[in-house]
């Protein structure tokens, strides 16, 4: 699944960067900065935090590069740093202000399927790109951070299950379980948005 960076041969750059070549490191940064920024925005849901996460991530990566073993891919390693930074931001922000009580109440213990309805044909074509992005963003933002983070890494950034587990420092079964819940919750939200109207004929569960 994780094929997005397959054409980019980072090994030589990485070697130079580890030897202290600042230019090589800058090239690596430029290659991954968009993905890290997107990831940071998805997790923190905040422009300012996302920028901080972006900077902190690459500054830390630069500091710790000599200790990077190369057992994992550079991107997975950087992602792990970014996820940690982003989750820290999220925790900080939460303790800064009162925790909203109207957070999604679904604890995710049950596999939720309520809305069983087919979608309108080419549902997404009825919306502008911007509207569509807003709908999707809102849907992801409504997930619990644990689920959101796994979904973003697996289904948006297209990391493998193993890479996601490594980036988050959780087990493979935990990734799978969170991903299933995230996918089902998003399916639920989007189906409410995109279902063919007046045809809830399967709704007899």
């Amino acid at each position: 699944m994780a094929q997005a960076t397959a054409v980019f041969d980072e090994a030589p750059l990485l070697e130079r960067a580890r030897a202290g070549d600042a230019e090589a490191f800058t090239e690596l940064v430029q290659h991954y900065e968009r993905r890290i920024y997107r990831l940071a925005k998805h997790i923190t849901q905040n422009d300012e935090d996302a920028e901080d996460v972006l900077q902190e991530t690459f500054l830390k990566a630069f500091e710790h590069l000599p200790g990077f073993q190369g057992n994992s891919k550079f991107y997975t390693w950087v992602t792990r740093i970014a996820v940690n930074e982003a989750l820290m931001k999220l925790r900080k922000r939460k303790s800064d202000k009162t925790v909203p009580l109207d957070e999604p109440v679904d604890t995710g213990d049950e596999l939720m399927v309520r809305e069983i309805a087919v979608w309108e044909e080419n549902a997404e074509e009825k919306y502008s790109r911007q509207e569509m992005n807003d709908i999707l963003q809102k849907a992801v933002d409504g997930l619990k951070p644990d689920f959101r983070t796994v979904f973003v890494l697996r289904d948006i950034e297209e990391l493998s299950t193993e890479e996601t587990a490594e980036a988050l420092g959780i087990s493979v079964p935990a990734v799978k379980s969170r991903l299933l819940r995230a996918r089902l919750q998003l399916r639920e939200k989007l189906t409410r948005q995109f279902k063919r109207k007046g045809e809830n004929i399967f709704d007899y569960l």
Binding site: V29, E33, R34, R35, Y37, R38, K41, E51, L54, Q55, F58, V113, I116, A117, V118, W119, A123, E124, R129, M132, N133, L136, V140, D155, I156, R183, L184, L186, R187, L190, T191, F194
Partner: peptide, 28 residues
Amino acid sequence: VVDTTKQTLRVFKGMEPQEIPSTVQTRL
């Protein structure tokens, strides 16, 4: 459920990657 979950994943895969604002990029 299978069909709508597949469609859910499909629309997310088509999501626009976030451009970094140039000021953010410069500051980085």
